[in-house]
Design a protein around this nucleic acid. Structure first.
Lengths: 219, 219, 219, 219
DNA sequence: CTCTAACCGAGACGGTACGTCAGGTCTTGAC
DNA sequence: GTCAAGACCTGACGTACCGTCTCGGTTAGAG
């Protein structure tokens, strides 16, 4: 049923016929971004995208399995979802940088709405769920795993919680706030998470710029 | 737009006109439960529910704003989503009991699928999102808050993380596993969460019944 | 199915129970007249009549078989559909008076629209068709028949066309203009019909006030 | 509201997109004819037509504004509603031929029922009324006008009634019998109409086969 | 002075069909 | 072989009314 040749497929040089139109691809992704901002994901339709982009529905169906895939593609193409992971010298500082960068992404209301919609769609469409996980979510986990690997090599990765659980906690809180409570992802949360996951003996940040009161040890 | 007199509204004795049919209400909720199990949420339709329950569509639209609301009602009516919160004597033990009971709910594949679908719908329909939060999600937070209140009174509530953040962490992990990783909610996770959130000096469980090997460090 | 005790039924003295509410009857007929003028017959509904009149649907269904019957009742109650048939001394003059009076009825746009709608409904509902014929249409034929009877007695009823066909012609033209061409029923048509159906030797009107050019009589 | 590109529109060679399916069109018209014969116009529904014809409702709505239009199309496509108007040499004979042919059409019970229903719908839907008049009714008037034109040229068109009124009389009687009295359109009526409208001195039929009593001429 | 029958308003009920929307597929002629 | 265009079948939507069926509450004769 889903015989798409995978959108990222190479052009296959020796193939006859007209080549895929890059202009149409761009137009479709642009139209999708505009439309989702204007009418919201629930009112986003393939027909609307085709009309807005001046393309045919078939062209969309030929290259993407669902409207969520188009949207995911648009998001990944346009927005810089990349999380930088420079080595800050300690697990605590690496983690803090990672969290701060991750939270920044969630600050943009439009991007957050799209992420919520994609996550929602992933629950209703198993295939898309798999794609979303492998193409977007896993990359963030991988980034965190790199940080944890560095920490392990360095020797300052705490024994508990396990790295996997730590990741679940980090991403769990983020998604929970995005999906459920709609609370902002603020610096206070960064501090709490770092304190909990990287409770360095000489402890994380020495001089905090946060307004949070000194945390009198949580050990 | 949402002029529903609230399904749980009292019968209002002195009102003229035919009373709401309890038989129809039951039939609709039952049909919804059956159908969602048979065809899945994505293929659940109001028309299908009406046909299966032997009622008219209007009767459904009269009392529920959307199919997700019917499903939520069915879930809350049928399934016992109640989380008991007996006083076990310590925050650690209370928390452990709470988590164990909560995780048990997620063990039933069908209930979990429904919860995933409802959470998905909540992302696409803001009004339903509000209803889901107040009618279902908030109750669980309240239960946890009771435990935390007891701990505060008892003096064994750790200062960090804050109770609110602790709740975000707990529910965040649960939903993240349910929605994203589809990992089972197992005893190991209970232990890790308790260890992190209630790191009692005399520490959580002394004698574990868990099959998890002592974690001799994973670093 | 249609066990209505006939709206015009006598009060039947020895019957227990509450009497039919004359106030409701009036309110229903009045609401019907208003509504049909406001929204047109096609958008006239029993529910609308009930709401506007402040009565229950059942009260309408109890006394009238269809909305067309309500409307017919309203029309016959309010509008004076009676055609006077005074003896003018000759068939030609009687006929002229009859036609003039009949045409006057069709001058009111609202009454004409209602008659069109009732005639339309009669085509779709055989039972109502029978009622419309016996309660309204036949009365007009009877009035014409009285005139023709007088003429026969008087000896100035032409042998052709037969009285029945003459009636068909008269009412045929009226309804055809009302239903199809929407042409006004004017004095010129009266003259033509009289000239054709009562071509008296000493002929109808000697001095016409009509604007029609003298026509050398076609007798 | 009525943006139909007119069903009879030419195929417009250089237009992109899939062509209208002639097979669907035929199936819809055929299904409509069958259904109206089986269940009657009042129980004819667009959904029924779509189901019976194996097409989608949208395909019907795309090309016809209402079920009455579908039915009119079916009637005009299938039934030969054409009235031949050969020159018989005199107005009386032409008229007799025209009436006989017109009456024959009304003999078929099914066609008559459809015509009654269409006329009824025309009263409830002004737009359809216009279409019915221009596409069907006017054509018959035009045919009669041709006959009258020939008579005028020939010099045997009586000065009274005026041609327009004569047409009103002819079609008025026909429709009145079809819609109201349900009397058959028989030869006797033909004779009476011809006698009245074409009262040739040496006129009309010399030897009548009608059972009507000799009428001593009323001219 | 109840009893019982018929009416009344209100309004929920099981239905049917509406007209619309969008989905995903197919067809056409151009490129 | 892809493209824009657009018609096709399908299925569900949410709405409007239908005609019926409770409700609680009058209103009137008969007992």
């Amino acid at each position: 049923m889903n015989d798409q040749p995978a959108p990222e497929a190479a052009p296959e040089p020796g193939r006859p016929g007209r080549r895929r139109s890059e202009a149409s691809r761009q137009a479709i992704l642009a139209a999708t971004s505009e439309l989702v901002a204007e009418v919201g994901y629930a009112n986003l339709t393939i027909e609307g995208i085709a009309a807005r982009s001046g393309t045919g529905k078939q062209t969309i169906y030929r290259w993407w399995p669902s409207k969520a895939d188009v949207l995911l593609d648009a998001l990944m193409t346009k927005a810089e979802l990349h999380i930088p992971i420079p080595d800050k010298g300690s697990y605590a500082d690496d983690l803090r940088a990672f969290l701060t960068a991750s939270f920044a992404l969630g600050r943009d209301r439009r991007i957050m709405d799209i992420q919520r919609a994609l996550m929602a769609h992933a629950q209703l469409d198993e295939d898309f769920g798999r794609r979303l996980r492998t193409e977007a979510l896993q990359r963030r986990r991988d980034a965190l795993a790199v940080i944890q690997g560095r920490a392990r090599d360095r020797g300052d990765l705490p024994p508990s919680p396990s790295p996997g659980t730590a990741a679940d906690l980090v991403f769990g809180v983020i998604w929970y706030r995005v999906l459920v409570t709609h609370q902002p992802l603020d610096q206070a949360l960064v501090d709490e998470l770092v304190a909990m996951l990287a409770p360095a003996a000489n402890g994380g940040r020495r001089r905090t710029t946060s307004s949070r009161p000194r945390q009198g040890s949580n050990g």
